[in-house]
């Protein structure tokens, strides 16, 4: 075996490696090792990437936008809420349903800009502390959460307890003489619309950047 330890030439031929040929810089052993590692990497990737994609896929799939008729316009009053049960996720049976409180827009108390989506106000029952179901108590005209005592006023704004922002709302519209309930959106303490956020995610000041909106659910563009 020729001594190759002192010769640091990049060419295998200069280093007297057996079988070397003109201009060769990568030894065949190194090439074999690299090729084996690359093959391994491709094989692992072929298994791992689809699996990761499969697990992460739902993070990029947008929730189907649903509109559901909930009643005739004359069923709703501007001074009191009535409840309706709607389906927010299709194909999940009872689990996909949620209760919503509805009333007609009341210009005396509803000061957010009027558009086609807020002629009726639809308040979500998801508490903005950690997502327990709130209920509307007509006697006090407040929404109360049973879990940790979150209290919201008639507009859904936080009156007390741990919730970080007002109750979510749903888009509403009137179509073919019926009131329809659409997708969910979140509001900050000024009742400005934001893409839906999970409970416990503040939307005032830096909140909207600390808790970014997600590809799975967005508010209706331009609203």
């Amino acid at each position: 075996m020729p001594d190759t330890s002192k010769n640091t030439s990049p060419y295998t031929a200069d280093r007297n490696i057996p079988g070397a040929f003109e201009g060769e810089t990568v030894t065949r052993r190194r090439f074999m090792t690299g090729a084996a590692h690359a093959t391994n990497g491709i094989a692992v990737g072929m298994i791992a990437l689809p699996a990761i994609g499969f697990a992460l896929g739902p993070n990029f799939k947008k929730l189907e936008e649903r509109w559901e008729a909930v009643g005739r316009p004359d069923e709703f009053s501007p001074t009191e809420y009535i409840s309706r049960t709607i389906t927010v996720v299709a194909g999940a049976g009872e689990t996909g349903k949620t209760t919503v409180y509805l009333r007609e827009r009341n210009p005396d108390i509803d000061h957010e800009p009027e558009d086609e989506y807020n002629q009726y106000i639809a308040i979500s029952t998801r508490c903005m502390h950690l997502g327990c179901p709130v209920r509307y108590v007509p006697a006090s005209q407040r929404f109360i959460c049973p879990c940790h005592g979150g209290v919201y006023d008639f507009l859904g704004e936080v009156q007390g307890g741990p919730p970080v922002r007002p109750l979510d709302r749903f888009y509403t519209r009137v179509k073919d003489g019926l009131v329809e309930l659409g997708p969910r959106f979140s509001v900050n303490s000024e009742l400005k619309r934001f893409s839906p956020r999970d409970p416990a995610q503040d939307l005032d000041a830096l909140g909207q950047y600390l808790f970014p909106s997600r590809p799975t659910i967005r508010k209706i563009p331009g609203t």
């Binding site: 697990a55 992460l56 739902p58 993070n59 799939k61 929730l63 927010v88 996720v89 194909g91 999940a92 689990t95 996909g96 839906p196 997600r214 799975t216 659910i217």
Partner: peptide, 10 residues
Amino acid sequence: DFLRAGPEFG
């Protein structure tokens, strides 16, 4: 979203 496999329990 990852835990729920989407924005809502389904």
